[in-house]
């Protein structure tokens, strides 16, 4: 394909996706009235007051840490529980396998809002008593991430050529050994997919965090929502908060990208 055409398409999409980011960063250093009245204009005056207000609120450092902790734990728990289960569904035929698998898929189909009240009771002081701590989120996050995790990983495990697994068996690996040393490494691209997907869903999750956390010890989406006003959103300040949230994450993604992509492809089966 023509190089120029290719770059033209890519640049078009770059404008579409990068512009909002740029807009957000610009809005963060503008005056509220300026953003409201001339959203797409050039800033008339640059101010750091919004960023200062966000950092001064003191909640974002904590929220950042909380989000990272909860997401990491949730992703890890989903993977630790989901991968063996997916392996069993893919490679250890047992009676009722298909029915059980469908049961796991059910979780994807329920809108989260109707589970809020039951979960609130389950985790509240009358139940597990975890409500208000970060622990309260990890269970539901991992639980609701399991369907996708199992679905994707089962596919990946099924795609591994039978011979490879049999060869491992010949070399004296048990099931667990085959799973740990052959299946898991070969499924690396799928695992990376699952990790990214789960991480992003948990990173943006609002309803559970609102219900189950102590608002003074929130995750990022809850902390950001605080900058909404009584009747409408305070744009400049919200954007400043979003910059604090998004830019470090993007920077890390950008820096680590080569490793992520390598990780995504390294283990792939090359036939």
């Amino acid at each position: 394909m023509k190089r120029s055409l290719r770059y033209a398409v890519l640049l078009c999409f770059l404008v579409l996706t990068a512009y909002p980011l740029l807009w957000m960063a610009l809005a963060a250093v503008r005056l509220e009235g300026d953003v409201q009245q001339n959203p797409f204009g050039i800033p008339t005056q640059v101010t750091l007051a919004n960023l200062a207000a966000v950092l001064r609120s003191g909640i974002f450092g904590k929220a950042y840490l909380n989000s990272l902790l909860v997401c990491a734990a949730g992703v890890a728990a989903a993977l630790a529980c989901g991968a063996p289960a997916a392996f069993a569904f893919a490679r250890l035929p047992f009676r009722g396998s298909q029915a059980l698998f469908l049961t796991f898929l059910l979780g994807m189909m329920i809108p989260v809002h109707v589970t809020l009240i039951p979960l609130n009771r389950l985790l509240g002081s009358a139940g597990l008593g975890l409500k208000g701590t970060l622990w309260a989120l990890i269970g539901p996050y991992a639980g609701f991430a399991l369907p996708v995790t199992i679905l994707i990983l089962r596919g990946a495990f099924e795609a591994i050529p039978r011979d490879l697994l049999d060869a491992a068996r010949m070399d004296g690996c048990g099931h667990w050994g085959t799973f740990r040393h052959v299946a898991l490494p070969l499924a690396r691209p799928a695992i990376a997919t699952v990790v990214i997907f789960n991480f992003l869903s948990m990173w943006n999750e609002f309803a559970f965090a609102l219900t189950l956390l102590d608002p003074r010890n929130p995750t990022l989406p809850i902390a950001i929502a605080r900058f909404k006003g009584e009747h409408d959103i305070e744009i400049a300040r919200t954007c400043a908060a979003l910059c604090v949230v998004v830019l470090p994450l993007l920077a890390v993604y950008c820096a680590a990208q080569r490793h992520i992509i390598r990780g995504l492809t390294a283990g792939a089966v090359k036939e």
Binding site: C81, P84, F104, L106, G107, V114, T115, L122, G143
Partner: peptide, 27 residues
Amino acid sequence: RRLATPLYLLPALAVYGLFVLTPIAES
């Protein structure tokens, strides 16, 4: 294998049953 399979499924079932199936049943 017959003993092993449940062990692969157990952690997932526990987490899923407690945090997903129970609320779904309740709703």
